[in-house]
Design a protein around this nucleic acid. Structure first.
Lengths: 193, 193
DNA sequence: GTCTATAATATGATAGAC
DNA sequence: GTCTATCATATTATAGAC
């Protein structure tokens, strides 16, 4: 038996950490932060309770790591959608939203669920707000460029529409007409295409 | 000292029950079902833990009572909005939504928060779905009467818009322009008024 | 790097006194 | 009708063996 190299140990550690993050994301999203115990996470990840604490110093710390990672991924994957043509840019952003919603469904569900728990969200409110405001101000810029009246208000409405679509989709995945809803949105906001 | 009459005892009991319902609604809405302990509810209501169990047989039972009561109130207070003129009816429903959102803010917050926790919501999904579908099918009827294309889809979109507005309002009550948003909605859906 | 055992505390729920 | 005391269990987190 060859002894494991330092790299192999590190790779193990990374894999364990990712497993914890991955499984607790699913549990937090579906059962809520307080509805999920460390025990449940350990079982879902196929490891011991103790090992979780060698990666994260507390349950809160674990949640924070999940949120930070989620936003990082989201931002990385939506970079490069800007377009000098405002209509094209808006179309990209609508596509982005749908792509992210479907690709990172679980994180999205966790994120929105947390919004309804002021007690928990307080610590993360700033990072969430920052992400949200950045999106809305992009929408507003586009609407202004397109000559829309009340651009700021319309931008907030578009943000709200996205959120509402997500809620309804999560509540009843099978029946909510996600695809057709996108068509309606594109037709409403970009009638000339 | 006159001994208390049976009526006085019953009045006390009713008041206690209402206090429990009232305070636990606020706590469940703000901290989540699992984030709220019976201890916290007892403290908030200024009574003992034990007394809660003389009114509700379990924490789950308490949540169910809150939900049922909430929907009953909502339905009672939105009855009688129907109007033979579809445009007037739609205007009424938009007004209804806003009135209910503001008047029963806490219940609304609890209700939407629960939507993101499949584990909890499962037991109440039917009653929630029923309420929601009834509203959406009313919207659809109106849109058909107004000659709108894709009436069903447009109805679902309106429902989603309402939900999205609620989310955004809850997340940042001070800054979200609730009133101006209503104006935009009324203008968009009822441009002739 | 991972596990088992355990500490310290909090929780949902009940029994019995007043 | 209400409260206090208590039970049984579950929870977060840590210590120490392998």
């Amino acid at each position: 038996m060859t002894p494991r190299t330092r790299e192999q140990f590190q790779a193990m550690r990374v894999r364990t950490r990712e497993k914890i993050l991955d499984r607790s994301l699913v549990l937090f999203a579906n059962k809520g932060f307080h509805g999920t115990s460390i025990q449940m996470i350990a079982e879902a990840a196929g490891i011991s309770k103790g090992l979780i604490y060698s990666h994260f110093k507390s349950k809160d710390d674990l949640l924070e790591a999940i949120i930070r990672q989620g936003f990082e991924i989201m931002e990385r994957e939506t970079a490069g959608s800007a377009d000098p043509d405002p209509a094209a840019y808006l179309a990209n952003l609508i596509e982005d939203y749908y792509r992210m919603l479907l690709k990172h469904e679980t994180f999205w569900q966790l994120y929105m669920g947390l919004m309804f728990q002021p007690g928990i969200v307080l610590r993360y409110k700033e990072v969430m707000m920052e992400y949200y405001e950045r999106m809305v101000s992009e929408y507003a810029r586009i609407f202004r460029a397109l000559g829309v009246k009340n651009a700021n208000l319309e931008a907030r409405l578009l943000g709200a529409i996205f959120d509402g679509i997500a809620i309804n989709y999560f509540f009843d995945r099978e029946r909510f007409p996600l695809k057709r809803m996108k068509k309606i949105l594109l037709r409403r906001y970009l009638p000339d295409r």
